[in-house]
Simulated assay, not measured.
Amino acid sequence: MTSNQSLTNSRTEVIEPYGGTLQNLMVPSNSQEAIKQSASKKIDCSDRNACDIELLLIGGFSPLQGFMNQKDYDSVVNSNRTADGKLFGLPIVLDTDREDLKIGDKVLLCYKNQSLAVLTIEDKWLPDKVLEAKGCYGTTSLEHPAVKMIAIERKKFYLAGKLEGLELPKRIFPCKTPSEVRKELPHNQDVVAFQCRNPIHRAHYELFTQALHAENVSKGAVVLVHPTCGPTQQDDIPGSIRFATYERLAAEVKNPMIRWAYLPYSMHMAGPREALQHMIIRRNYGCSHFIIGRDMAGCKSQLTGEDFYGPYDAQEFAKACASELEMQTVPSLNLVYTEEEGYVTADHAQSCGLHIKKLSGTQFRKMLRNNEEIPEWFAFRSVVEVLRGG
């Protein structure tokens, strides 16, 4: 047994947050108006900004207490660590084109007519976005969605500073805070996190329920199904429909070993770096284990069809970071559906000569559009009903 396994298996409470303290940057209600009035300037935030602000306020990005300064930003870009040496996958910064904002200013951060927080500016700089792209995403190609995002969507300057929280964004997805999720988790069991950004089909369900029986997961563990609800890729299913599929599925399966929550996070499709980012966030939500899928958070060139990351890059990078994070990774099984035995590993199916049934995503969408019968081995009936309605 490794020291990491011993640490996990002897735990009598939920794993402690990264850095030891779960940050809570929300100010008491009786102080909010005074904090709000202290701001002399205002910024209207993007959807991505709002996700970052929310995760900072509720402790999802613990140990951060605000947006990173240039020293931390440079360190994370270059070495996936903050300046004081803590692991971090991607920089957390606030962007602006405002020339008038300066260090020392108090700025009200607004989102869709909500006043989310007051930022006290501690640093402002002109980032080298080419270096950021190469360091964080391994490419400078604008075909990579995050490279395109930082080059075109993100504004000229980056701001840093501590936050004083006033209100959390109102969302279709009701996002529980890390503190709320932790209260619902068993205090003497492993908690396995499953990340997704699309509707859950049968193969996903088999994958994360079978993960509870992995060698490094203790008996009686639970899985936290924790889909992201922030901006994703343009061709992804809209958030309101995804949310409806999760709610219907949770009600249908009623599995006591599954916990459900939603994460206000905007995907970067950053492969290995994103795997690390997700592990840190899930540790803050109380998870001891994290399922790493093949080509997790990967993307590919639309011109050449080539992947920006290798199929196991995220798994290998996350595994290398796991011990320091005091977490464990659970590689996702390569499951296939067979006529004889249902879902089994591809290796088992091949060695036993089983008949594998396949249905591609393109075929599935075509069958949805044509109102054809979807096989239940592929998709839950409740999920199909929601997708057809949407």
Rank of each mutant, 00 (worst) to 15 (best):
M1G: 15
T2K: 13
T2N: 15
R11M: 13
E13Q: 11
V14Y: 04
E16C: 12
G19R: 04
L25S: 00
M26Y: 10
M26H: 09
V27D: 05
V27S: 11
P28R: 07
S29Y: 11
N30V: 05
S38M: 00
S46T: 13
N49D: 15
A50W: 08
L55H: 03
F61P: 00
D72L: 10
V76G: 12
V77A: 08
S79C: 13
N80Y: 10
A83S: 13
A83Q: 11
G85L: 15
G85W: 15
G89H: 08
L90Q: 15
L94C: 06
L108G: 02
I121D: 00
P127C: 00
P127E: 01
L131I: 07
E132Y: 06
E132G: 02
G135A: 03
A146L: 06
V147L: 08
K156D: 06
Y158S: 05
Y158T: 02
A160E: 03
G161A: 14
L163V: 06
L163N: 04
L163G: 07
L163F: 07
G165K: 04
K170P: 05
T177K: 02
S179H: 07
L185K: 07
H187W: 12
N188T: 15
F194R: 01
Q195R: 02
Q195H: 06
Q195C: 02
N198Q: 10
Y205S: 06
E206G: 11
F208V: 08
Q210F: 01
Q210T: 04
A214V: 01
E215R: 11
E215I: 08
S218F: 10
V222I: 13
V225A: 04
T228M: 13
G230S: 09
Q233I: 02
I237G: 06
I241S: 08
T245D: 08
T245A: 08
Y246F: 12
L249K: 06
A250R: 08
A251Q: 09
K254H: 15
N255F: 12
I258E: 08
R259D: 04
A261E: 09
A261K: 08
P264W: 05
Y265L: 12
M267Q: 10
H268D: 15
M269I: 05
G271R: 06
R283P: 01
R283D: 03
R283C: 01
N284I: 09
G286Q: 07
G286M: 07
H289E: 03
H289I: 03
F290H: 11
G293C: 11
M296H: 15
C299I: 11
S301K: 03
D307M: 14
F308M: 02
G310R: 06
E316H: 06
E316A: 03
E316S: 07
K319N: 14
E326G: 14
E326T: 14
P331R: 08
L333S: 07
L335G: 08
V336D: 12
T338I: 00
V344W: 05
D347V: 15
H348T: 11
G353P: 00
L354A: 01
H355K: 10
H355N: 09
K357N: 09
L359P: 00
Q363L: 12
F364Q: 02
R365C: 03
M367V: 10
E372R: 13
E376F: 04
W377A: 02
F378P: 00
F380R: 04
E385G: 00
V386Y: 03
L387A: 03
G390A: 13
